[in-house]
Design a protein around this nucleic acid. Structure first.
Length: 711
DNA sequence: GACCTGCTGCGGGCTG
């Protein structure tokens, strides 16, 4: 039977009315598999290849919507994505007479109440709203979701390898718990690594044996152009901005400059050039600190601008599948930290099938150029970095224990233990560790034991009844910036935030007039000139493979035709500098350059291994400094034989945990990477730190095979 | 220099 014939009559009519000549490959494959089987599937296919329909056409053909309850639950990492998908799915569902409901923090209350009265059809939700439902509506959640047939998870890669992902995994497990029948899961993504045959992904869905991957690997033609403009100051060179302007002035463009401050610098800089030369006025900035309504306006403008060109300077806010219509060009300024990120960004351009994507990769320093080239070569080899999933997520366990106890309002110890042990996201955590954590919660008044039952304790109430409880990630405190009642965005309280200081925000220039420290508000007026805003944050980690590729490029003699003259010259100089070292094997050989006062160890390894090396060197009194972006560390020359010392270190698990316990006691801020870690017993804090923040295993195998090449 | 993501329930003020 053809895929089209396998679909139900109303769905066939939908396709007919849409005027689709044929189904996309990923849609054909999904229909052939989803309709006749009850497996879980993950559909992997590039952006704009029709993944949403690939999931919903067969699911809607198959599901019996006449039964009680919500039948299909769609989970998305972003509210903006839910709002986009709602419009598409609702149109499709008009053919079936099936209601669709948005359920997130900004969705209409009326629609939610209607759903509670008549649970039916399809619900689109965020993980945090699902968590809130478990905590505040434990009875209604059964009423709503006890008859699910399908759960669809959009942008599933964005959840893998993070605490938010483990949280979602736990919620799925709890959802399955309240269902009498097994529901099927369909995940959607454009970027998933197939290292180890997708085992992380399959385990994430809780049923590895019955989870299949459907992947459309059809490549997409991309015209990549590298351009090198060295920056001599913290600001971008005017040559670079002028070049970007010329390359993008007649197109619909997205620019990714990697940091919010730089996003503003680029948006304002290009706007000024355009003003001077009489170009278009549609220069915008889009990142987490631009006011939400402003961002929505920018998205709306991009989506609905058929004739007018525009240029949006943005961070990863525009990396996922929010619908902004057709983009002709993507500009990346300095290297992405991952291949996955590069794929998502490239995927945003040339969404029309017949058009190739244009990609401009600018670099402002030699190391960034090198990493950029490494990412590009790995991308062409179809490599995507693996995600590291923490198998013992004690922090998520603690959070979910509070959530489960709150939902049950009173639970026997054995009952609680049983529910946690049955949760697939905690399957690698030993039973006695779970017991120890529950006892600790009772000891610290997060839980309270009354008779034979556990309830939420006095301290626990403060956490559970706070709106901050529903998420596993934390956000810094920012000051709201507005101009005469018009919201513009947010700024952190930095040294820059002073009266009369001028600053860029939302692609415009402002003068700070008033700062209210109580209400955390900043009042501004328009200004003519200013500086880029200062934001604080941690850079994302880069994996070992990218750094190793960088060394490979240095050792190779390949000439890359995608580089401009300045890029060629920069790579040539890097090769020349390292040519005095006799490096043969990029997998094992690493360079140490001994200078007069310092030695430089060119590690060419991951950010996590850098942190681990740094921790070990601190412990053994080797004075040093890590430079992650240039893949190196400088070491005081008096510590001459640090290489021998490092390779001589053999730390067993117990010693590492003891050392980390001490580190946490000396520097509690070490736990800032996790929102809930501070409520754990010290030993589990140390274990979590070891697994999530450091990489002792990777560091050990890196050091074991290491061959130091010195001058 | 340095990414991103989400949010209940209730009360007060306003509109129709």
């Amino acid at each position: 039977m053809t895929s089209f014939d396998m679909l139900s009559a109303p769905i066939r009519k939908y396709i007919y009315d849409k005027g689709w000549g044929s189904l996309r490959p990923i849609q054909e494959a999904a229909i052939q598999r989803i309709i006749p089987t009850d497996n879980n599937y993950v559909l992997i296919s590039r952006t704009a290849s029709g993944k949403t329909e690939a999931a919903f056409l067969p699911i809607l053909s198959k599901v019996n919507f006449r039964e009680q309850g919500v039948k299909v639950l769609y989970i998305s990492p972003l509210i903006a994505l839910i709002n986009d998908q709602f419009i598409r799915v609702e149109k499709l569902c008009e053919y079936l007479d099936v209601p669709v409901t948005k359920w997130h923090g900004e969705a209409a209350k009326g629609a939610k109440e209607k759903l509670l009265k008549h649970p039916e059809g399809i619900v689109l939700i965020t993980p945090e709203s699902l968590e809130a439902m478990f905590v505040n509506k434990p009875y209604q959640i059964k009423h709503l979701f006890a008859n699910l047939e399908y759960v669809v998870i959009d942008e599933i890669h964005s959840f893998l390898g993070s605490a938010r992902g483990t949280h979602l995994q736990s919620l799925l497990s709890r959802l399955q718990n309240i269902n009498s029948r097994k529901f099927c899961i369909v995940g959607l993504s454009a970027t998933v690594s197939d290292v180890n045959r997708y085992i992380e992904l399959k385990e994430f869905l809780g049923d590895p044996e019955n989870t299949k991957i459907i992947r459309d690997k059809t490549p997409k033609p991309i015209n990549a152009v590298f351009r090198y403009f060295a920056s001599t100051s913290p600001n971008l060179s005017s040559d670079l901005l002028n070049d970007v302007y010329v390359s993008t002035k007649n197109s619909k463009t997205l620019i990714f400059p990697n940091a919010r401050g730089r996003v503003e610098e680029v948006a304002v800089g290009l706007k000024k050039i355009s003003d001077r030369l009489g170009g278009h006025q549609n220069y915008f900035s889009h990142h987490s600190s631009v006011d939400k309504e402003v961002r929505e306006y920018v998205e709306f403008f991009a989506k609905n601008s058929s004739v007018q060109n525009f240029c949006i300077s943005c961070t990863s806010t525009l990396e996922l599948g929010i619908d902004i219509g057709n983009v002709d060009e993507v500009v990346q300024i300095d290297a992405t930290h991952s291949i996955a990120s590069l794929i998502q960004r490239v995927g945003r351009s040339g969404r029309r099938e017949d058009r190739a994507s244009n990609l401009f990769l600018y670099a402002t320093d030699p190391w960034s150029l090198l990493q950029s080239v490494a990412c590009w070569l790995l991308y062409q080899e179809q490599y995507i970095e693996p995600v590291s999933v923490n198998k013992k997520p004690y922090d998520v366990l603690l959070h979910q224990t509070l959530s489960i106890v709150k939902a049950h309002s009173g639970m026997m110890f054995s009952e609680l233990l049983e529910e946690i042990c049955a949760n697939s996201s905690f399957s690698r955590i030993e039973k006695n560790d779970i017991e120890a954590i529950i006892r600790h919660l009772a000891k610290t008044d997060l839980l309270e034991k009354i008779g034979n039952e556990y309830i939420i304790g006095i301290e626990g109430e403060k956490l559970v009844n706070n709106k901050d409880f529903y998420s596993l990630f934390q956000t810094p405190v920012l000051f709201k910036v507005s101009c005469q009642g018009v919201k513009i965005g947010e700024l952190p309280l930095s040294s820059q935030v002073r009266i009369d200081e001028n600053v860029y925000l939302s692609a415009r220039i402002w003068k700070i007039q008033d700062i209210d420290y109580e209400t955390k508000k900043i009042e501004v007026i328009p200004a003519r000139d200013g500086k880029k805003p200062i934001f604080s944050g941690d850079p994302a980690d880069t994996v070992h493979k990218i750094r190793e590729k960088m060394l490979e490029i240095i050792l190779s003699e390949d000439q890359y035709d995608f580089l401009d003259a300045a890029g060629h010259e920069t790579i040539r100089e890097l090769r020349k500098y390292f040519s005095v070292f006799e490096v043969k094997n990029p997998e094992t050989d690493r360079i140490v350059h001994h200078g007069q006062t310092n030695s430089t160890f060119y590690t060419f390894t991951s950010s996590k291994i850098h942190r681990t090396l740094s921790f070990m060197m601190d412990s053994f009194g080797i004075e040093h400094q890590i430079h992650d972006s240039s893949s190196s560390m400088s070491i005081k020359s008096t510590d001459g034989d640090f290489a021998g010392v490092l390779q001589g270190i053999h730390l067993d698990e117990i010693t590492i945990v003891q050392m980390l316990e001490q580190l946490i006691q000396e520097k509690p801020a070490m736990l800032d990477f996790s929102k809930w870690a501070k409520y754990l017993p010290l030993r589990y804090q140390a274990k979590l730190l070891k697994e999530s923040y450091f990489d002792f295993e990777g560091c050990h195998s890196f050091l074991k095979n290491l061959n130091f090449v010195e001058n």
